[in-house]
Design a protein around this nucleic acid. Structure first.
Length: 371
RNA sequence: GCCUGAUUAGCUCAGUGGUAGAGCAAACGGCUGUUAACCGUUGGGUCGGAGGUUCGAGUCCUUUAUCAGGCG
């Protein structure tokens, strides 16, 4: 499916671009942050909560839904949107490639596919590019991902070279398997680690397969910041101007800004929701841990300028009380705030691109934000 | 009044002669395409009191206090 991605404005000072694309849910503006709902739910949040965060696209995961409840059950509901009652915006499914990184052993990866042991019951599983696409076709997300290997970091040049070549062959198989190209956009994924020539090769050859958009994967897997930004720089020049660029798994506020400056359009990350469950809130001055005793009598909201439901209605003191009392509302309120914090940051970024002052915005932001 | 049992970290409890421990709680840290409401670090004890035996006692003995049962 053609998302009709359009560049509205290119920054005059960096590679950032303001853009939009189209689905049956309407126009989506980029740069954008997408919250993650692995198991067809953004953990702790109802669809109404998600909408209140002004999110647009949300993510779900092929591997997890394949295992449970199974793609047929989702299909019986008429697809993911109906299954999880998210009607506000598009859904993107990740392909299961990250689970190759987090759950499978390198020795279990073959040309044909990846051998897994189910994290639920230990059952032996085999995921192939064809199976990933077949499952994603049934899940019915608006944007689906080509099945890739997300290699361990660090890995050798030789391992990475073999890996990207195999991922390219998998990408071709994914394209050939994709049976719903009229309703689902299929993105290819660029790998190559920290090796410039491999990022270049992976990008050029993935683009040659002509996907509906392109992801940069294998980032935020343990590398330092400098390396992380280089990985983006090595790939971006070879990605077409007229297609969406998606940096997978990145969601730290500074990383979002740096990614946009380098030409990235969309991001996803578990960080806002995971940090929320672990009692942390994003603020303009860095993240804070609400379990800390100093918030016991703090009557201020998480962030004075934030317009989220949580900040409009609750004090830090109350949220700390919920955390100490192990009440589940704490992680819900923090999830709402953290996601809204990032969608709000993306609004500011879009405005800065429009005003051609994104680099100044970045410098001001970093000077306040303690990473 | 007599008999038994208990008393060790804030709490619940291990530790039966050889350098005082765990879980929880507390304080704090980490988290980047979710195997994570998770993981980690740190602080915290005259072992109820007083005597005694012993090279050495949380541990054995005497005594005492408190608590819980049982019998009168």
């Amino acid at each position: 499916m053609n998302l009709n991605y359009k560049v509205i404005k290119k920054s005059s000072e960096c590679s950032a671009r303001l853009g939009e694309f189209e689905t049956i849910y309407g126009i989506s503006k980029t740069p954008m942050f997408m919250p993650v709902g692995t198991q067809a739910t953004v953990k702790n949040l109802s669809p109404e909560d998600i909408i209140s965060t002004k999110s647009d696209v949300i993510l779900s995961n092929t591997y997890h839904l394949w295992l449970r409840p199974g793609e047929d059950i989702v299909d019986m509901h008429g697809g993911l949107h109906n299954f999880m009652n998210y009607k506000n915006g598009p859904i993107l499914t990740d392909c299961g490639g990250f689970q190759v990184f987090s759950l499978a052993n390198p020795k279990d990866i073959s040309e044909e596919g990846v051998k897994f042991k189910s994290h639920i019951n230990g059952e032996s599983l085999f995921l192939t590019p064809e199976e990933s696409i077949r499952v994603q076709n049934k899940l019915g997300a608006d944007i689906i991902m080509s099945f890739d290997e997300c290699p361990y970091y660090p890995c050798t040049f030789k391992y990475m070279e073999n890996s990207i070549e195999r991922t390219l062959r998998w990408a071709k198989r994914c394209k050939e398997t994709h049976s719903k190209s009229s309703t689902q956009a299929l993105f290819g994924i660029v790998q190559g680690g920290e090796f410039p020539e491999l990022r270049k090769k992976s990008a050029i050859e993935t683009v040659a397969l002509n996907f509906d958009g392109y992801s940069i994967g294998g980032v935020s897997v343990g590398e330092d910041n400098e390396t992380k930004y280089k990985m983006i720089d090595y790939a971006i020049p070879y990605l077409p101007e007229d297609k969406i660029r998606y940096l997978m798994g990145v969601g730290d506020p500074i990383d979002l800004i740096e990614g946009v400056i380098r030409g990235v359009d969309i991001f996803d990350c578990v960080l806002p929701t995971r940090l929320a469950r672990h009692n942390n809130a994003f603020t303009k001055y860095g993240k804070i841990n609400l379990r800390n005793k100093k918030y016991m009598d703090d009557l201020s909201p998480l962030d004075n300028e934030c317009d989220c439901y949580t900040c409009k209605n609750y004090t830090k003191s109350y949220i700390r009380h919920l955390i100490v009392s192990q009440e589940m509302l704490a992680s819900r309120l923090l999830s709402i705030h953290n996601i809204r914090f990032l969608t709000s940051l993306m609004e500011e970024i879009r405005l800065a691109i429009k005003n051609d002052n994104l680099l100044e915005f970045r410098d001001n932001y970093i000077s306040k934000y303690k990473k």
